[in-house]
């Protein structure tokens, strides 16, 4: 089957029911999305399908209908996405395992809701777990990115 990931089309020979996360990591070597729980309870595997956050452990390869974007395709070192910039500015990451999912969730959220309330930020990010407990910095970074994106 064909999958478009980060603007590049790949031909992959996998079973239809293989989770997209497996395809990305094991078949395409795109290891930004992380495996955490496998049942959409942690958010570490979050990628975008046509810009909307989706848990790639739940989306079967055969059910992908849109273009996939992973953390590797969100920005580049020279042109970071506003959420990535905020992540660096506020030094959000501790161990860093969850941050690809956190950033992808936040980027999609701010694309859908450019003027979020604090409560909406908490609701949007509560499906992404951080075992280091960096939640206060995550919240600040999302707020900072929202402000920056509104100026664009």
């Amino acid at each position: 089957m064909k999958l478009t990931v980060n603007g590049k089309t790949h031909e992959v020979d996998v079973e239809d029911d293989m989770p997209l996360l497996w395809v990305l990591r094991d078949e395409l070597g795109i290891t930004g999305p992380k495996y955490g729980c496998g049942i959409a309870q942690c958010g570490a595997c979050t990628v975008h399908e046509d810009g909307v956050a989706v848990r790639s452990c739940q989306l079967a390869a055969g059910d992908v209908v849109g273009e996939i974007t992973t953390i590797e395709g969100l920005g580049t070192p020279n042109t970071l996405h506003a959420v990535q910039e905020a992540w660096i500015d506020l030094q959000v990451a501790q161990c860093g395992y969850c941050q690809a999912g956190q950033i992808m969730q936040a980027a999609s959220f701010l694309d859908l809701n450019s003027e979020p309330t604090d409560d909406q930020i908490d609701a949007a990010m509560s499906g992404n777990l951080c075992r280091c407990g960096s939640y206060p910095r995550i919240r600040e970074a999302v707020k900072s990115a929202a402000t920056k994106l509104r100026r664009v």
Binding site: A53, R55, Q105, F109, N113, Q120, A124, G127
Partner: peptide, 9 residues
């Protein structure tokens, strides 16, 4: 749509 879409999971 304004927080986390149902379809995310």
């Amino acid at each position: 749509a304004e927080t986390m879409p149902c379809r995310t999971c």
